[in-house]
């Protein structure tokens, strides 16, 4: 029998549980290869910005604020879809057996989920930057600090949808999960005042909207522009993130017991 000459026997452990930037870059590139995702995080928000904003004459005449308001809302919507898409891939990859494949590598589950969350957040950032760029190019005027604060606020708050993506992903681990979740996101977006200002909704729906996941995100993202941030909004974002995150964890655990 051939002696083991060539094969190394001195091996170290992987630093950071396998978390690394190469894998992160490849994940983001892969997500952007999906035309549907790309459409919903880049084309769709800009298109709606045009429909609701630029072509809406009243908005132009009323000064800068309504146009910026619509732009931020659309950016939030894009970030929401991006984050949800990213989060939903976790359950899908589990279903495809990719997670099982990864269990044969030193990758730690925590490192894997962190990379997934960062990928989701990167998609959200791309959506926000894309929509803001289109807005800036077509005449949205805001002070530099408002651009920055609104973008940052929209980005950080949309994290709740990375958790939401994880959650719905485990519930419906199908490749076309986003087809079902898309309309759901649109409905949620209405309650976040994304497509029309909340004040134009019937009173009963306005009250209901306060309890939906999008409410706080929309409010906080637009707060740098129009003010009105409330503790309720902050609490809404935090609570929904925890709720979706813990829900996903419980469902994952239940699944593991079965596998």
């Amino acid at each position: 029998m051939t002696p083991e000459l060539a094969i190394a026997s001195d091996r170290g452990a992987t630093p950071l549980g396998g978390f690394n930037l190469t894998a992160l870059r490849l994940e983001i590139t892969r997500m952007l290869r999906n035309r549907r995702t790309l459409f919903f995080i880049l084309v769709f928000p800009s298109a709606f910005f045009f429909i609701f904003g630029l072509s809406y004459k009243g908005a132009r005449d009323a000064g800068d604020v309504p146009l910026a308001y619509i732009m931020i809302s659309m950016a939030v919507y894009g970030a929401m879809v991006g984050n949800t898409s990213g989060g939903a891939t976790v359950a899908l990859e589990r279903n495809l057996g990719w997670s099982r494949q990864l269990r044969l590598t030193p990758l730690h589950p925590l490192a894997y989920v962190s990379m997934k969350v960062l990928t989701s957040m990167a998609l959200g950032l791309i959506a926000i930057c894309g929509t803001f760029a289109v807005g800036a190019a077509t005449g949205v005027h805001m002070g530099p600090s408002i651009w920055l604060m609104a973008g940052l606020s929209a980005w950080v708050c949309s994290f709740v949808f990375a958790a939401f993506g994880l959650f719905v992903g485990v519930l419906f681990p199908a490749e076309n999960v986003m087809q079902f979740v898309g309309p759901l996101l649109a409905i949620m977006a209405i309650f976040g005042g994304v497509f029309i200002p909340l004040s134009q909704l019937p009173k009963g729906l306005q009250a209901f909207a306060k309890f939906t996941p999008m409410y706080g995100v929309g409010l906080l993202a637009r707060a740098p522009l129009v003010g009105g941030a409330t503790m309720w909004a902050v609490g809404s974002v935090v609570l929904w993130t925890l709720l979706f995150g813990i829900g996903a964890m419980i469902l994952f655990k239940r699944d593991t017991a079965r596998v």
């Binding site: 170290g12 992987t14 630093p15 690394n20 190469t22 894998a23 490849l26 994940e27 590598t105 030193p106």
Partner: peptide
């Protein structure tokens, strides 16, 4: 890319 991704997980 699949190989590169997997490779990045090993020291």
């Amino acid at each position: 890319e699949t190989v590169e991704y997997t490779a990045s997980l090993y020291p």
